[in-house]
Design a protein around this nucleic acid. Sequence first.
RNA 1: GCCUCCUUAGCUCAGUCGGUUAGAGCAUCUAGCUGUUAACCAGGGGGCCCUAGGUUCGAGUCCUAGAGGGGGCGCCA
Length: 505
Amino acid sequence: MQISEFPKLEKKTVTIKGWVTNKRTSKGLVFLIIRDGSGFTQCVIDEGIVKPDIFEAARNLHQESAVECTGVVVKDEKQIEGYEFQVTNMNVISIAENYPITNKPHGVEFLIDHRHLWLRSRRQWAIMRIRNQIIYSIHSFFQEQGFVQMDAPILTGNACEGTSTLFSCDFYDSKAYLTQSGQLYGEAMAMAMGKIYTFGPTFRAEKSKTRRHLSEFWMIEPEMAFYDNDMNMDLIESFIKRLINDVNEKCKNEFSMLNRDTAIFENIINKKFPRIPYNEAVKIIRGEIAVNGKTTIEILNQELIKTTGRISEINKEISEKEAELKAPGIKLGKQNFIQNKIDKLKNELKELEEEERNIPQWLESAKNFEYGNDLGGSDETVLTMLFDTPVMIYNWPNHIKAFYMKRDETNQELAKGVDVLAPEGYGEIVGGGQRETNIDLLIQKINEHELPMEAFEWYLDLRRYGSVPHSGFGLGLERMVAWICKLKHIRETIPFPRMYGLLTP
RNA sequence: GCCUCCUUAGCUCAGUCGGUUAGAGCAUCUAGCUGUUAACCAGGGGGCCCUAGGUUCGAGUCCUAGAGGGGGCGCCA
């Protein structure tokens, strides 16, 4: 039986198999928190109920030891999910000693080096289940609408957009690259199937060390024949709404484990996403246009004031707590408790101080933003601070977009691309647009980007034979997970992150 | 590639103006406690203070260089 089935098993005698995540003992009683992958529950081993050797065995268990327990499911409002497990018999499957991840805070470096074990912790358990739900919903959404899933090649002979740095490898004595996007292949397949989507790994070799970059990440790239960019944006919006709706319904328990406030999800499900042309977005970023009565400059200044205010609050709180620690006759338990609080406050302080350093830079960058430039990471963050739903930015200057982006018929300077920025400071989660159908313009662009024409001959064939308007987009799975779970760092969104300086485990 | 912060026990962190033998909690081991939710309680073991130079009577603490890590920018999903 699985722990997740407990609500159906009240007062029944069942057997569960799992791992000990925490143990507390007192005279005559052992409390074990057991996890079995489906959930967590507290097992009570009472000296008066079980045999003496079993009680002794329970007393000697360590964190992450594996056990098989037989007992009765008991309702108890105070417990996880409202149930606990009164053990009548127990069988030790294996003893684990000195498990490195203890029931205390750990640093990022330590945890990431123990990723293979970190995945067992509650927080990671919740994130991985939400990731799973998102993946399931992505497939459901597209399959229900008649999209055909396709697998694009991972090894490619050319750098598709010519901009990113790619990982290269040897392919029978010639050079190959790990794909940075399946899009061009998706376009070919869309001409065969009408509507397709790819869902696979992509690779970028940039030495980025930020909280939103990975070297290896998973991307979903739909491509639709006979779609213009407006239809594309409609699809993106209903797609994101569907994902949010599903996690909101099905992952309540996981979100509460993460302390993720899900109030914003209602907004996203019900409100229309703002669609803002690039030239207007520029004015918003520069603080020339207010949104809901506020400009970016005002918001940033407010943030800065809030941050410095919070910093002095925390400093005060820390010195108060430190004074408390020095009080005579303080109990060890209390002391411990206060010390934990202080540690937490100091961590928060570190983050706030970093923010305090960053905000003025962001402010400068926003004020001095020049028309024609691409949005930087901080510009995106600043822009999304003004909204409580994702925002779509469309009609970009064509010189900052990829060679295949369709030019706007009414303004040759613009390309019909769309980027979707997630709220709460998360920035770009989707990039897409309508594809160029004019073969002469494509050839011109390939030359301008100094890309090898022979590598794109097959792509040009798509325009030679039955060219139709078509559009598509790419969603970064990990960025989506990071935003939905409101995580500080993208490295927690994927089981084994690959990033600059991180290849094991 | 550039900017910035950090590195003390297995883990999280103290360590004052440069001054005797380097500290706490957690984890672990031993002992006690009838229901605990990271908060009981007594004790034991556990250190290349990141590395290499330098200043000094004296360096965990100051200086220089290097290594490793966090974050930001650029690039992007």
